[in-house]
Amino acid sequence: MTRTDDLPRIFGLREAGVYYALLILLFALAAIASSRGLPPYLSGQNLGNIAYQASLIGIMGVAMTVMLITGAFDLSVASVAALSAAVLVGLAGSIGFVPAVFAALCTAAAIGLLNGAIVQFVGINAFIVTLGTLTAVRGLVLVLTGGRSLMVEDPDVLAQMLAFESTRVPLFIAGILLSAVLLGTAVWKRRPLMGAAGLCIGALILLAGPGFAVAAPVIYLAIFTLIMWALLGFTTIGRRLYAVGGNAEAARLSGINVHAYKLGAFVLSSVAAGFAGVLFGSRLGAINPTALQGAELTVIAAAILGGTSLFGGAGSVVKTVIGALLLFTLTNGFNVLNLGANYQGLIEGIVVVAAAAIYTVGGQRRVGKPKRADTAPDAPPVSEGASA
Rank of each mutant, 00 (worst) to 15 (best):
A222T: 07
R138P: 04
G175E: 05
T107W: 02
V218Q: 00
L38Q: 05
T167M: 11
L268F: 00
L91W: 00
V181M: 04
L305K: 06
D5N: 12
I201V: 03
A314C: 15
A230C: 10
G238N: 12
G312F: 00
K189E: 01
V271N: 11
L178A: 07
S179R: 11
K189R: 14
G202T: 04
L26G: 13
V143Q: 14
S282E: 08
M60A: 13
G333M: 01
A324N: 01
F27V: 15
I69T: 11
N338M: 05
M64D: 07
A386K: 01
S79D: 07
G202M: 09
L113S: 05
F102M: 10
Y19H: 13
G294Y: 01
G368V: 08
S149V: 10
S55C: 13
D374M: 08
S316I: 12
M1N: 06
L91V: 05
G255W: 04
L337C: 12
A251H: 02
V336D: 08
G58L: 06
A100M: 08
L268K: 14
Y242S: 11
L178D: 07
G245K: 06
G132E: 01
N332T: 14
F127V: 08
Q293G: 04
F275G: 06
G211P: 09
L193V: 09
V382Q: 13
S76W: 04
S179P: 09
P170L: 14
M194H: 00
K369E: 15
N335I: 08
V278I: 09
L134I: 06
I32R: 12
